[in-house]
């Protein structure tokens, strides 16, 4: 299986997740160890009614999904993964009415753990809404590395 096929399988898997579908998440781009996803603004997902800003939990959900997608699309990781730990730093509020994006990179994979960094942003990638660091489980190697 080449990297492109693996990314496609990861995309199909992510797009089939009931909660991701419920929130309307879309895969924008996916390749070996890197994923970009989008979540359209929706008034149901607001966390602060006074400002119309999306709930922190929505940002968390998108970052977690996108990070998981980058792990699944990594050539050295098997088809399944689970989040071990996720830290999110909120730099600023997401602008109301704007679509939210997340970009994740699985930058290191060991035999048991995949490490990911990710950002969430609306219009300007250089002014992120949030940044995340996560550790994910690694089940087996798609490339058949011996354990």
């Amino acid at each position: 299986m080449d990297d492109q096929q693996k990314a496609r399988i990861a995309q199909q898997f992510i797009e089939a997740i009931p909660h991701s579908r419920a929130l309307g998440m879309e895969m924008v781009e996916i390749s070996a160890g890197i994923a970009t996803m989008k979540l359209a603004y929706d008034a149901r997902f607001v966390g602060d009614p006074k400002t119309g800003v999306l709930a922190g939990g929505v940002v968390t959900a998108l970052l977690d999904t996108c990070a998981g997608a980058s792990v699944m699309a990594h050539p050295e990781v098997g088809a399944a993964t689970a989040t071990l730990d996720l830290r999110i730093d909120y730099m600023r509020a997401a602008e109301p009415e704007r679509d939210l994006y997340a970009q994740a990179e699985c930058y290191r994979v060991t035999r048991s753990v995949a490490f990911v960094r990710a950002i969430a942003y609306t219009d300007d990638k250089d002014r992120p809404v949030a940044a995340a660091n996560g550790a994910f489980t690694v089940m087996s190697s798609a490339k058949g590395r011996s354990s």
């Binding site: 009931p18 966390g47 709930a55 929505v58 968390t60 999904t65 998981g68 689970a82």
Partner: peptide, 27 residues
């Protein structure tokens, strides 16, 4: 609720749901 599922194979709650639930409870 079915819409909270993140892994249909297990099945398990979505990590984002768990995170949201914890954060809302904290706030």
């Amino acid at each position: 609720d079915e819409k909270l599922i993140g892994n249909p194979a297990l099945p398990a709650l979505h990590g984002g749901v768990t995170g949201s639930f914890l954060e809302i409870t904290a706030v």
